[in-house]
Design a protein around this nucleic acid. Sequence first.
DNA 1: TTGTAAGCGTTATCAT
DNA 2: ATGATAACGCTTACAA
Lengths: 330, 330
Amino acid sequence: MAATIYEVAALAGVSPATVSRVLNGGRVSEAYAQRVREAVDTLQFRPNRTARNLRRQRSEIIALIIPDIENPFFTALARGVEDQALRAGYSVVLCNTDEHPEKEARYLEMALSGHLAGVVLAPASAATRLDALVESRLPVVTVDRPAHGPEVDAVVMDDVAAARRATTALYDQGYGRVGCITGPRDVDTATARATGWREVFLDRSAGGDPAEYVRFADYRVAGGRAAMLELLRLPAPPDAVFVANNLMSLGALQQLVEADLRPPAVGLASLGELPFLPPGTPGITVEPWPARELGTAAAALLLERIDGAEGPARTVVIRAAGDEPVQPQA
Amino acid sequence: MAATIYEVAALAGVSPATVSRVLNGGRVSEAYAQRVREAVDTLQFRPNRTARNLRRQRSEIIALIIPDIENPFFTALARGVEDQALRAGYSVVLCNTDEHPEKEARYLEMALSGHLAGVVLAPASAATRLDALVESRLPVVTVDRPAHGPEVDAVVMDDVAAARRATTALYDQGYGRVGCITGPRDVDTATARATGWREVFLDRSAGGDPAEYVRFADYRVAGGRAAMLELLRLPAPPDAVFVANNLMSLGALQQLVEADLRPPAVGLASLGELPFLPPGTPGITVEPWPARELGTAAAALLLERIDGAEGPARTVVIRAAGDEPVQPQA
DNA sequence: TTGTAAGCGTTATCAT
DNA sequence: ATGATAACGCTTACAA
């Protein structure tokens, strides 16, 4: 079946070591190199990656582990990671955790014991443990949400500022009271986005208790729907809403349409593009969510580590789509 | 760093073989098993997959290779594959080829030389060569589009019938002349869908040359847009259009909105769901595209092969979402 | 420059 | 039931 390096060596009349050198760019005389290449061709030799990885203790594959492959945000992020990784000669495999910590653990374990070159991880939950990877010195970078536990490189966006901008845009359009639908209470990005909204709310609303106008949902379509409904049922409902991610924006929008309050009747600002929304859906403000940029930044950090960069964990904050990444403190 | 099976054996006072047996369910006395488990715990031993795969000549990982990770059709398909595979104890890694044959070749090579358990492939182009995999007896199943070359298991949908249904639905709604936007001429699914449309067109249109009302685009948003524009500029434009996939439907819709012909002014039937389309977008007919079912069927076939099933290549045709798969000829 | 040989960490064969 | 040992296919000191 599959030829081995020994058979190639035999056919070329050289030692296996020489074949290996030809394949990996070692010093070999042109005469031998030629014969080896011929032997490789005629035997259709393909080096066995598993054996090579075992010997070398590493591979050229990067794992990108994400919580929801059906969320356009993560697929855009994936494109960013691929972009950089392929350019550097690495392949990228995607692993979908479906927000399940167990599936996540399984893929992390695969990356670790499979000698992958590194991992870009969008953590499924706050409970994600990275200790084993860090101990084994397997390069890891988190994106979107930071992980708790040992410090690793991370790329996040500037949630507070983005929320502030989106909310401000609504007030600037003339809406008087902007509600907020954000993610789970125990997710950092969710509380940060609520914070940004709250600042603007306090500043520009004609009174009203922020606590009354914020809803902590689940970052998914159904949650956005339900939260929107609750807000509409308030004694004094908001006339606009800032929604903290793309999926929930869709849910909120569905709810508004059902309640016959389609924008601009009620204003909607989405943090994150709604890529499949057809045009001619006016009254919707989109605050760009630099998914792809998060991905490229994460891959860049990871590649540096793979190349042996030492030093403390870094956090890169991406301010907005198109912005240059900024590195604050280490 | 990472403990080996030898260190576990030493700590437990047994041989490495015994440790291996404990880990893989061989016959071991309870006393020894106990001691081994303790040693595994205290050393935090994690078996080295690379070594195991090299020895066993196989792994528990299935690769799913798709052309476009940002297309909801393929992500839905991925969920179907994952579903089945995880249930059977396999992990699934996704590989995005971006429609590039070279990237595809790279991932196929990875699957082959990395001893993956099997491959589910949605071929990027008609040029995809599967010979090497087949020769190496690596189980492969194609989905969506069949591959040329050696016969392998395949799962496809019933393109002609689906196109027929979608087109018929438009005529039934009262439209008089339905155009067609399909995929590239050299893609089997594209011509099959055009065929289904053509049958109904000839049957129910008040005259008109089908060749005039069909456009072969690229299965992408931009192609749908451009094709729609062309159709609208015909001397006698169609008053409805059957679009052969989800992405192009979106493009066509964008074009209609721009031309102020938003459905139902011009009818639109999409082959494939538009998952992020908000409700209250009336006048759009959706012919379900059983993406997830394609995925589960493909995984089922693959798992049988992995389990050693022999015999000729099989083709499963999925008729519609929810249908039971049908197996025609072998 | 080239070859020899020792691993990389498992599993499986064969004795015991 | 358990243990020694030879692979799996490659890379890389070290020798020549």
